[in-house]
Amino acid sequence: MSAVFDAISSRRSYSAVTKDAPGRAELLTLVRAAARAADHGALRPWRLIELRGDDRVALGTALAASAGLEGTAAAKLAGKPLRASLLLAVVASRQPSEKVPHWEQDATAAGVAHLLSLLLEDAGWGAMWRTGGHTRSEPVRRLHGLAETEELLGWLYVGGIPDNAKPAVRPPIDPAAHLTPLPA
């Protein structure tokens, strides 16, 4: 098969990454390539927000606030964004269009995020797309400066691949169960 087939077939999420992370210049190159995702109408209905350093602490605070937690429970939730040195918030930035509905624009944003995760892995970085019940909460929306036409789809947690990373374990699917003909 091809290198693309091999890359997709071996794709995995890295729930733990090292503190290393790609720099901005490398990210810009990868984002440029990820922008080739299918995009009906070429609306570019997405954007990414780069969170590093104290931005991750602010996100943790917003997550804890959205949950209404205090004490140890708040600290545990607030610590989750510190699992990676770089978080990339994936934002569906819906554009006005009579031809392209919002759901299709959201699919484009998700496509960009998925391509970016593949490109990051190809460049030697580990990534995991994380969401959660507080992803679309008001404190988290405010922190990310989202417009009314935008929705946060989650974050790519990005870092170095640990030396002790185990191979991805995902049972193979029966493709015939997922590729069906149109019902009669």
Rank of each mutant, 00 (worst) to 15 (best):
residue 130 R to N: 10
residue 159 G to I: 00
residue 132 G to N: 10
residue 127 A to K: 00
residue 158 V to Q: 02
residue 121 E to S: 10
residue 137 S to N: 06
residue 167 P to H: 08
residue 160 G to S: 08
residue 173 I to F: 12
residue 162 P to N: 10
residue 166 K to N: 07
residue 138 E to V: 07
residue 122 D to Q: 14
residue 171 P to L: 14
residue 127 A to H: 00
residue 136 R to P: 06
residue 139 P to A: 09
residue 140 V to A: 03
residue 120 L to M: 09
residue 158 V to A: 05
residue 131 T to S: 14
residue 177 A to Y: 11
residue 169 V to R: 14
residue 142 R to P: 04
residue 124 G to E: 03
residue 170 R to E: 06
residue 177 A to W: 08
residue 145 G to H: 09
residue 129 W to N: 13
residue 142 R to F: 04
residue 145 G to Q: 12
residue 138 E to K: 06
residue 135 T to Y: 02
residue 142 R to G: 12
residue 166 K to T: 14
residue 142 R to I: 07
residue 120 L to Q: 07
residue 168 A to E: 14
residue 133 G to M: 06
residue 132 G to I: 04
residue 127 A to C: 01
residue 164 N to S: 13
residue 141 R to M: 03
residue 121 E to W: 06
residue 134 H to M: 14
residue 139 P to R: 04
residue 172 P to H: 06
residue 175 P to Q: 11
residue 160 G to N: 14
residue 166 K to C: 08
residue 146 L to K: 01
residue 135 T to S: 02
residue 142 R to M: 08
residue 123 A to D: 13
residue 167 P to Y: 08
residue 155 W to K: 06
residue 157 Y to G: 04
residue 177 A to Q: 15
residue 160 G to K: 10
residue 146 L to I: 01
residue 126 G to L: 02
residue 136 R to L: 10
residue 149 T to S: 08
residue 156 L to K: 00
residue 127 A to T: 04
residue 173 I to S: 15
residue 177 A to S: 15
residue 162 P to T: 10
residue 129 W to Q: 13
residue 164 N to E: 15
residue 129 W to D: 13
residue 157 Y to I: 04
residue 153 L to D: 02
residue 176 A to G: 13
residue 153 L to C: 08
residue 122 D to M: 10
residue 135 T to F: 02
residue 144 H to D: 06
residue 176 A to S: 15
residue 173 I to Y: 14
residue 150 E to Q: 03
